[in-house]
């Protein structure tokens, strides 16, 4: 086709673009992913039996605030890397902010704990399962975010994949917190973070393959 014809064709029906279009599209896909993850959790394992009382306890909210902060940071980074202009990858360090804060809280908790409890505070009863469960619960969100990032214009595909992956991982962690009944902050710090990181690394690995446009 002649380029002039192409231009004519592209200009015939130009839909107006909303200013917040990028944010809204990301939010919509993210919500779809989270809903699917919730439904999958409900129909596979269900939520923890004491959820009705647990949502009034501090450990539950530490999980949600930790993961929620990571979702917010991860999503804004994803939006940054959804645009084609070159970005410094150092902005990824923002993701460390909640990790550092939780580390401080965990250290404080450990310093107050009797020595016999420390082992249990790190490993709980589900340490080996937790990261993999979070990764599994994250997958619907992961797929949704990768799908929408591909529609945007990322040019640093590894970084864009990592940011979207971490966002999906943190979303998965939020959903998984409805099932997981671990209470110790060192446990959350170690194994939740590892699950989220796994999802981020999955994004970084697959980014160059599936985010290409």
């Amino acid at each position: 086709m002649q380029t002039s014809d192409l231009i004519k064709q592209l200009s015939t029906q130009v839909m107006p673009v909303k200013r917040q279009s990028l944010v809204l599209r990301l939010l919509l896909m993210w919500s779809c992913g989270v809903v699917v993850a919730l439904v999958l959790l409900l129909f596979s394992t269900g939520v923890r039996r004491d959820l009705a009382t647990a949502i009034f306890t501090l450990p539950f909210w530490i999980k949600w605030i930790y993961a929620g902060t990571l979702i917010a940071i991860g999503a804004s980074l994803s939006l940054k890397f959804a645009r084609p202009e070159r970005q410094s990858i150092h902005v990824l360090w923002w993701l460390m902010l909640p990790v550092i804060l939780l580390t401080l809280i965990a250290m404080l908790d450990l310093s107050h704990a009797p020595a016999k409890d420390i082992h249990r505070m790190w490993l709980g009863h589900s340490a080996l399962m937790c990261p993999w469960n979070i990764l599994a619960v994250s997958l619907p969100v992961f797929i949704a975010l990768m799908f929408i990032m591909r529609r945007f214009a990322p040019t640093q595909l590894v970084t864009a994949g990592f940011a979207a992956g971490c966002t999906a991982g943190a979303s998965g962690a939020t959903v998984y917190a409805l099932l997981c009944n671990e209470n110790a902050t060192p446990f959350i710090l170690a194994w939740y973070s590892l699950g989220i990181l796994l999802c981020g690394l999955l994004g970084a690995t697959l980014g160059p393959k599936i985010l290409r446009w």
Partner: peptide
């Protein structure tokens, strides 16, 4: 055309086109 919503009007358009 199809990815024009990734343009941020507060930034230079030329850099955006160049990046693509």
């Amino acid at each position: 055309h199809t990815r024009r919503d990734t343009y941020d009007p507060s930034r230079p358009l030329t850099s955006w086109v160049y990046a693509i």
